[in-house]
């Protein structure tokens, strides 16, 4: 229960939210709202765990988990890009399908027992930095380090490359981008797929690294929805998303850890599992999500920052409007 240990575990837990949030940023930047993150994460978590348990190879598990979630995302892509369905309803449908399918295919998987673990290591030098070292660079999973790499990469890609320019244009003003020769339809399919891959990676991170195993719907416990909220908090910016993801991961971890010990500071722990106060503690991450939405929504109104202008709108070539 050392504070540094909670922060260290919080970074690992936050990595799940980081992957899912970055994925959703890609999709939404391209103009596609995908509310199916929770369903895609469950499919990713279930497939990754199932493959890893069967083959003993967690890397193969991650790969398949990502691909399965990516494939699932294409269902949403077809519905909203070509069939011009309502993106909210289609995203909900995706969550239903993903949840149902993962429960059906994951039947009996919770008894599968342990799987081969992913490598966990410390970064030499960096881990000896006071405070930050133990939190970020000491005995973390390889996926956590992958997360660190992905943050600047995503940021650079979105703001400083030609591909990123096209991505932003597709979400802000697709007709103009189309006129310049950007293939809006192809681009949207691609970034919805990227979002699916990352949601799958987020799920695999849970089932293979953060809390290994398959616990049906409780595996994700609403983290896919928190990721959707974090995108709004992040104002579609990967750097803010990283901050939000790690902060939330720490909060989740804190809520879990403080329920463990029977005594706190020599007194009996009022938050111990299934004591009355622990239920209020469990509400915290969800209440906090609403709170940051209140704060960030006000901020985005004040600064006139906002969602990509074409977010949620189907693009029909030649039709009037965005």
């Amino acid at each position: 229960m050392h504070p540094l240990l909670i922060l260290q575990a919080g970074v690992a837990t936050g990595t799940v939210l980081l992957f899912a949030t970055l994925g959703e940023i890609f999709a939404e930047r391209a103009g596609v709202l995908n509310l199916g993150v929770e369903g895609m994460m469950l499919m990713g978590a279930m497939s990754a765990f199932s493959i890893a348990a069967r083959t003993g190879n967690p890397w193969l598990g991650i790969l398949i988990g990502m691909l399965v979630a990516g494939l699932l995302s294409q269902l949403h892509a077809v519905l909203v890009i070509h069939l011009q369905s309502d993106q909210v309803v289609s995203g909900l449908a995706l969550t239903f399908v993903g949840t149902g399918l993962s429960l059906v295919l994951g039947e009996g998987l919770s008894k599968a027992g342990g799987v081969a673990q992913l490598p966990v290591f410390s970064i030499p030098l960096l881990s000896s930095i006071p405070i930050l070292g133990p939190i970020f660079f000491d005995t973390q999973s390889v996926l956590v380090y992958l997360g660190y790499l992905l943050i600047p990469l995503t940021w650079y890609l979105i703001y400083h490359t030609r591909a990123g320019l096209h991505l932003r244009a597709a979400g802000e003003y697709p007709a103009a981008a189309d006129a310049l020769g950007v293939n809006i339809y192809g681009l949207r399919y691609f970034y919805v797929f990227v979002g699916g891959l990352l949601a799958g990676l987020a799920g695999a991170t849970i089932s293979l690294a953060v809390s290994p195993g398959w616990f049906s719907e409780l595996t994700t416990g609403g983290q896919g929805w928190i990721a959707v909220a974090l995108v709004i908090f992040a104002q579609w910016n990967p750097l803010r998303a990283a901050f939000g993801a790690y902060a939330f991961g720490t909060l989740r971890r804190f809520v879990l850890d403080i329920q463990g010990p029977t005594t706190l500071f020599g007194l009996s722990n009022p938050f111990h599992f299934h004591t009355n106060l622990s239920f209020f503690l469990q509400m915290l991450p969800y209440a906090f999500t609403v709170l940051i939405l209140v704060l960030s929504s006000r901020e985005s109104v004040r600064k006139r920052l906002g969602a990509p202008a074409a977010l949620g709108l189907p693009y029909v070539r030649g039709a009037r409007g965005l």
């Binding site: 949840t99 149902g100 429960l103």
Partner: peptide, 14 residues
Amino acid sequence: PGGIPRLIQGIVLV
């Protein structure tokens, strides 16, 4: 398995 009704509901919506 128990997830079947959920799955069918999802497919109906899709």
